[in-house]
């Protein structure tokens, strides 16, 4: 397998990619302790903001990392055929208070894929569901072509 030249995605390509995808990996840190979790998101390309629902329980590890307004990274990636695309977002995760919710928030969360509450094994009423927006400070998108020809079995 060999890698082709890596190219940076344009702003338009990055926005289109983030709009097509709906899941990624959110990474947080507390001192020297890392934490990463798969999340679903809604993306507003105009405002360049991400909208996330994060679910936790009183005992959950996630709650510890979300206790303050943390710096976060969101990685969204896709491998399609021989093309690998990824976007790394660095920004601050801000909780949206319930009394600050607007029609725009409702519309953006309506576009976000529903979290898989079922994996928690508890009724929704027993879960702590908080709404966050990720405001990017830096967004980097890349595309790379992967040539798998070298790995093909020879007959």
């Amino acid at each position: 397998m060999s890698l082709g030249p890596q190219t940076e995605l344009s702003r338009e390509e990055t926005d289109a990619f983030l709009g097509e995808r709906e899941t990624g990996v959110l990474s947080l840190a507390l001192d020297n302790e890392p934490y990463a979790v798969p999340v679903s998101y809604g993306y507003d390309a105009g405002a360049r903001k991400f909208y996330l629902r994060l679910v936790s329980t009183p005992e959950s590890e996630k709650r510890r990392f979300l206790a303050s307004t943390p710096q976060a990274r969101l990685v969204v990636y896709e491998e399609e055929g021989d093309v690998y695309r990824s976007v790394v977002v660095v920004g601050r995760l801000e909780e949206i208070a319930r009394d600050e919710l607007t029609v725009e928030h409702v519309e953006q969360y309506g576009e976000a894929k529903r979290p898989l509450f079922e994996i928690w094994g508890q009724a929704k009423r027993d879960l702590d569901i908080k709404l966050y927006q990720l405001v990017p400070e830096q967004v980097t998108g890349r595309r790379i072509a992967v040539d798998r020809g070298d790995d093909a079995p020879k007959s």
């Binding site: 928030h105 969360y109 309506g110 529903r114 709404l131």
Partner: peptide, 9 residues
């Protein structure tokens, strides 16, 4: 139109 903003229902 969009469902519950919190849980998506």
């Amino acid at each position: 139109e969009k469902g519950c903003v919190v849980c998506g229902s």
